[in-house]
Computed example of a mutant assay.
Amino acid sequence: MIDARTAPYAATLLRVSLGLLFLAHAGLKLFVFTPSGTAQFFQSLGLPGTAAYLVILAELAGGIALVAGIYARLVAPALIPILLGAIITVHGPAGFFFDNAGGGWEFLALWISGLMAVALLGDGVYALRPTSLTRATLR
């Protein structure tokens, strides 16, 4: 049974947490690896360097949209291909566990599950574009 009183707050907590993760990863690419360094890394994987800039932009825009609660039901699943790409190209070959060389893919799989939950739950409360999360829609 879902508690209709607290479910909107849980949706908000999940939405904001996932958005902050995307902002953190975009910040890592911008300020630590630098955009050109990220592009070089993408090229070393056989991907076009321009894809790095698109990923950074998607992480920034998607992270902001999730934190703010702007079209979260659409933004959340739209970000999943970025994580699937990271699994396929970098983390998947390293294995499941994060402590393997190159990191594992379990964190990304959990992140994808969280994004799917946001897509199903909606924005929650304190969103700039709230969805109608009523008792009737929670049943």
Score class of each variant (00 low, 15 high):
108 L>E: 11
120 L>H: 04
18 L>I: 13
113 S>N: 11
82 I>T: 12
39 A>W: 09
65 A>E: 09
85 G>Q: 12
52 A>M: 07
93 P>M: 09
41 F>S: 10
70 I>K: 03
21 L>T: 12
24 A>R: 09
85 G>E: 09
55 V>N: 05
105 W>E: 08
84 L>N: 03
124 G>W: 04
74 L>Q: 15
111 W>F: 15
97 F>P: 03
88 I>K: 11
46 G>W: 04
81 P>V: 09
44 S>W: 05
75 V>N: 06
52 A>W: 04
32 V>C: 01
115 L>T: 07
51 A>Q: 15
113 S>Y: 08
102 G>V: 02
116 M>Q: 11
61 A>R: 01
124 G>I: 00
84 L>A: 12
86 A>G: 14
83 L>T: 00
30 L>K: 00
24 A>T: 11
122 G>R: 07
101 A>N: 10
34 T>P: 09
108 L>I: 00
120 L>N: 11
130 P>I: 01
20 L>V: 14
79 L>I: 01
66 L>K: 05
70 I>C: 08
59 E>P: 08
123 D>H: 12
72 A>C: 03
26 A>K: 03
82 I>L: 14
56 I>W: 02
130 P>C: 04
72 A>V: 06
122 G>C: 06
58 A>C: 12
16 V>S: 00
103 G>F: 09
120 L>I: 11
95 G>L: 04
117 A>K: 08
110 L>R: 11
90 V>R: 07
102 G>N: 11
19 G>S: 07
115 L>N: 07
99 D>M: 12
16 V>R: 05
45 L>Q: 15
97 F>Y: 14
90 V>K: 12
21 L>D: 01
110 L>P: 06
97 F>V: 13
120 L>P: 02
107 F>S: 08
75 V>T: 08
34 T>D: 07
